[in-house]
Amino acid sequence: MENILIILIAIAGTTTAYFISIYLNKGPTMGAAVTTLLSGIVFSYMDSELGLTLAVVATTGAYAGMISKKKAPRIWEMIIIGFIVGTISILATSTYVGVGGKLGTIAAISCLSWIGMKKAFNIEIVKETDDAKKKGSLKKGIQSY
């Protein structure tokens, strides 16, 4: 149950940071910083150990949400990246404890894993071009080849 909660919070952190950064156009630093600050404040009111774990996981997710629109153009990709963040966070609890940057490294591994998966399985995120918008011939979404 705790692990499911960790994965859900990681997805929430990643999506929130991406939303603030890309959709609200505030930039990646503001997106991640606001998510980090909010998670730190909100989860500090929870049960001490679980609250701390969730705050850390949300923060890791927020760092992953700093990804650029070019690398991850759709917000649903954040759900997959968040899932990877949550899974790695569960597995890497006891690794490099106290080393600043550990969370960011987990975020980078998650983002690179998803970018790699997209390349490996030829998953292409199709974006509507101006011409296509006019013709209405190109559908939004994923196209797998």
Partner: peptide, 8 residues
Amino acid sequence: GVGGKGGT
């Protein structure tokens, strides 16, 4: 542009 670059 890769999320987590700063952390690494």
